[in-house]
Amino acid sequence: MRWMLLLFIGMSLPALADLEYSLKPRLIAQDTWLLEGSTDNFAKGNGGNIVNTAFIVTERGVVVIDTGPSKRYGEAMRQAIAATTDKPVIEVLLTHHHPDHVLGNQAFTDVPIAALAGTTQLLRQQGDAMAENMYRLVGDWMRGTEVILPTRTLEPGVHSFGNHDLRVLSLGGHTGADLAILDQKTGVLFAGDLVFYQRALTTPNSPGLAVWLADIATLEGLPWTLIVPGHGPLATDARPFEQMRDYLGWLDQLMRDGAANGSDMAEMIRSPIPERFATINLSRYELIRSVSHLFPRYERAQMTRVDSTPDN
């Protein structure tokens, strides 16, 4: 009996050990640490660690920017912070309500969790369904994960945390409620998912690509020195903005043209993807999703009432 138990433990240990995020904070600017995820899709192999999270060690304490895709990630992040600094975590800022950015909240319930009012509302409406889908996509990594709503409403403007003044912008191209944070001390711009770099952007809650393009112009106009995209590598130059503008413009024109010549969604998802986007991960996958999210608006704009009801 005992040897069977031992054998069982021996067999299960590697499986448990596999579910380690091994987060390694990287110093990217003064007091500023990044936890960079991959540019892949959610999968059982990566635990949903496809996202960039960060923390700033201010004189007063640590400000956390996004909490990752799961309770387990949040806890690993908390440990990584504790291994980096003795200062306590004083606040969490959530860039938007998507699951890969907020489902680590359970590890931070002892501090204020701040977000735009719209983010809290969207998380209340969609959080459970999104978490459920995450269980389907990444499996056991999600164990015990539940949605925790923000506890503080963040107003746009400058917020001081110790020696760091953070300028908070309320934008909306990605989800309708998107926070961007410019650290005025270091020039680091935490763009959240308003900027995807080398990873195809996602549109499930986008109010429209024109709104998003306007947000990109706003962000680019800020006095930044380093861009932290929500997904993808850091940049010290404007290339992430250029790529976003190019990609958003292409997507918009593609759907405009498709609607104008009567293409249907099944045809739209097979559209060729320009060679210049070859370095962008998951562009075909996200095109399929974006056509589902956005094309109905474009096609309706190209159709007119043709029924013979009395009021027509």
């Binding site: 104008a260 010549n261 009567g262 096609e299 159709m303 007119t304 029924d307």
Partner: peptide, 20 residues
């Protein structure tokens, strides 16, 4: 109910008809 949006889109030898 019963309102129909539609469009016709010429495509060479035939025309595409879309209805919602």
């Amino acid at each position: 109910i019963g309102e129909v949006l539609g469009g016709r889109y010429p495509r060479g030898e035939f025309s595409r008809l879309r209805l919602q």
